[in-house]
Amino acid sequence: MIRPSYLKRLDGRNQTAALKQQILFGLAIGWMLVLLGGLRYLFVPDASDSLWLAVLWIGVILLALTLIVPSVLAWPEKLWMKLAHIIGTGIFSIILMVVYFTFFLPVGYFLKWRHGCHPFYQWTDGQAVDAEGWKRKNLRAETIEQSGRKRPILIQPLILISHFVRQGHYVFIPALILLLLLGLILFFAQSSVLAPFIYTIF
């Protein structure tokens, strides 16, 4: 079966993105090793000079490979990103848990104390009472722009926050803002070669 041209372009984009990742990986890690090894070797003379010289050379070789045949870095880059993913998943879960216990839990208890039982909880072992029934379906009309371009990603959190404000969900907004910031950082970090370093900032 002939591969449709859309899929060929998708393959092309994926290959370009992978190559870009490999080059960024080679340059970032290569320069880091060169600087680390070079500085230690030149300015901090001690017994482990040969180690720092080796680090320097590994960095130089990595940079050379990046410039000549970046595709050989495909597997190291994949392993690096896998490491980033593992670190990221662990740290992310811890941060999410902190947010949950700091905001979700107290706000949830507050809501239940303030408003009584929500429909989620209102039933016990008995028969239904005060069923919500049919509610008005209010839909906001969308403004259509004929040649609209993609909206910048940084605008989107504002749209979401304004939606929560319109719905009167003020108590959820602190958690929402925190989660949005976290999400934005991770959205950009997940495809970056610096991801393992960004994650450790947390």
Binding site: F104, G108, F120, Y121, H169, V171
Partner: peptide
């Protein structure tokens, strides 16, 4: 988000 708050 609403559901997770109410059911915490």
């Amino acid at each position: 988000l609403t559901t997770y708050h109410w059911t915490a």
